[in-house]
Amino acid sequence: MLEHANLDTCGSYPQRGRMTASSPRERASHYAHVAFCAAVLVFLIAPILVVVPLSFNAEPYFTFTEGMLRFEPDAYSLRWYASIVEDEAWLRALVNSLGIGVSATVVATVLGTLAALGLASPAMPGRPLVMGLLISPMVTPVIISAAGFFFFYSSLGLAQTHLGLILAHAALGTPFVVITVTATLAGFDVNLTRAAASLGAGPWRTFRRVQLPLIAPGVLSGALFAFATSFDEVVAVLFMGGIDQRTIPRQMWSGIREQISPAILAVATFLIAFALLLMGVVEWLRRRGSQAD
């Protein structure tokens, strides 16, 4: 659900406009630039935003009714929200998504943080190779990973189990933790670890009292990315999950294919709100992290 859109490329150049006397040609290119950026934003955001009003549709349609366009109160309703709250399948999917998401996040965060710490040590041999291997789930097409998980976990008896899905999602989420923690560790002063050792602290105490508090923003934002990865993941669930492992995205998938109901729009709206919340938290952590420096 988290879109990694880099909006920096659409920034305008205020100084440039002020400093040079703008010829008509320059002004034209400036407006073209602004229009282009606006178009990019519209195409990125509009498909997402359009879901929100539609989810309040009083009719079982995926399009705006005439009543909705005239803003008639009767054209809007909360019936689809009611339907998902009442539907046991959606509730089970939510419980599954949260359970699998949280568990996978814990596994990915612990492993990813440890890996980043190890990779930050100059004594670690073959760093680029190990780093590449750890990051590979991010660049491998999910369908390849998912097929791999399916065949491998089937032979271990882990297919169609919660544990299997947790492990698969943890593998997909770990690279995010490795990357964010590695980035935080890049600014970490080795002398702090040495100072802790000279003051008598063992490795565990040094980690808990000195390293972890300082890299916490990286660990937390990595954890959030890992959670988001699991929370909106559908391919691995399609391959690996049985009827008992249906998550929200999986339930939406069936919702679209089997019962065309705006209920999934209500779910989507809920997910958008959730994603915005996560993004807000990540941004807040990033600012806190940069302030600490």
């Binding site: 002398n191 702090l192 100072a195 508090p213």
Partner: peptide, 10 residues
Amino acid sequence: FQNYALFPHL
């Protein structure tokens, strides 16, 4: 240490 190495969060 040369750069003091004080724990900044404490």
